[in-house]
């Protein structure tokens, strides 16, 4: 009699089914649409269209600009904050960290609406600075994702390394530049990825702050709304490739054992 034996492998079945239905299948569908035309024939015309159309290329450049500026702003704000949190003389670091992460627990649209109201009061008309409003919105939204990984690398930093540097003659600023900063690079890379990639596509921030310019996310949306699945899929695929490339390149700089990026708090 061959009885049913429960093994550890079978625990993976529910997720495998989910993965197939909602990740692999849609991906295949997108690839199919990206490389076919309205008649269902293979073509690379969609790819060429993207790189020759001034509108789509303009959107790519604008998205990249929003991402780069938002990421840099986040980094400049997050590093000192994470440093003070991690290395300061606090007794309850996790509580302080929680205060920084607390905004994440409030509904996203509610936060952006509040920000919109504040910016309206300050600027009178949001249409004056659409680009900078977007950067402020992105920064506000993604800042904790930058603080957390940097914080967790800094908090794990071995004090004896800093003492060794001082012992060998390094002044405090030299210790920072030669030891603390290089050793927090894995945290910076994680943070950059966690901010840079979503801010390429998060068009909700733009919409809510009345920025009518398209970024990659809204561009894809517009094609699908106009029933042009083929070009929409191609743009989605291109964006996927960009994100994949950035992740692979950045992954090399990440510490192998940087498992904990502090994501548990979110």
């Amino acid at each position: 009699m061959n009885r049913f034996r429960f093994t550890r492998k079978q625990l993976a079945i529910p997720y495998m089914v989910f993965l197939l239905l909602f990740v692999v299948m849609p991906l295949l569908v997108i690839i199919y649409f990206a490389f076919t035309n309205g008649d269902g024939q293979f073509t690379i015309a969609n790819l060429i269209t993207f790189f020759t159309n001034a509108n789509t290329m303009g959107t790519l450049v604008y998205s990249a600009a929003v991402s780069v500026v938002s990421t840099l702003t986040c980094l400049l704000l997050a590093y000192p904050a994470a440093y003070i949190l991690a290395r300061g003389p606090w007794k309850h670091k996790s509580v302080l960290m929680m205060i920084f992460v607390l905004p994440m627990w409030i509904n996203f649209t509610l936060r952006i609406t509040a920000l919109k109201e504040m910016l309206s009061v300050l600027e009178e008309n949001l249409a004056y600075y659409p680009f900078w409003n977007t950067v402020i919105g992105m920064t506000y939204d993604f800042l904790p994702f930058m603080i957390l990984p940097i914080y967790s690398t800094l908090v794990k930093l071995d004090d004896s390394l800093l003492e060794a540097a001082a012992d060998l003659g390094a002044a405090p600023w030299q210790i920072f530049l030669k030891v603390t900063l290089p050793l927090s690079v894995p945290g910076i890379v994680s943070g950059v990825m966690m901010v840079f990639l979503p801010s390429m596509t998060n068009y909700v921030v733009l919409d809510m702050l009345y920025n009518s310019t398209y970024i990659m996310g809204s561009l894809i949306g517009s094609y699908f709304s106009a029933d042009d699945w083929h070009n929409g899929s191609m743009i989605a695929l291109i964006l996927l490739t960009i994100i994949f490339t950035v992740s692979v390149v950045a992954g090399r700089y990440e510490d192998e054992n940087m498992g904990n990026r502090g994501g548990a708090l979110l």
Binding site: D158, S160, L161, E163, A164, A165, A166, D167, L168, G169, A170, A171, V179, P182, L183, V185
Partner: peptide
């Protein structure tokens, strides 16, 4: 004096070599 101003060097218990 702070450690970097002393002509004294230390060998640490767990070596404290710079991993980077």
């Amino acid at each position: 004096l702070s450690p970097n101003e002393r002509p004294i060097n230390t060998v640490f218990q767990r070596y404290a070599l710079f991993p980077h």
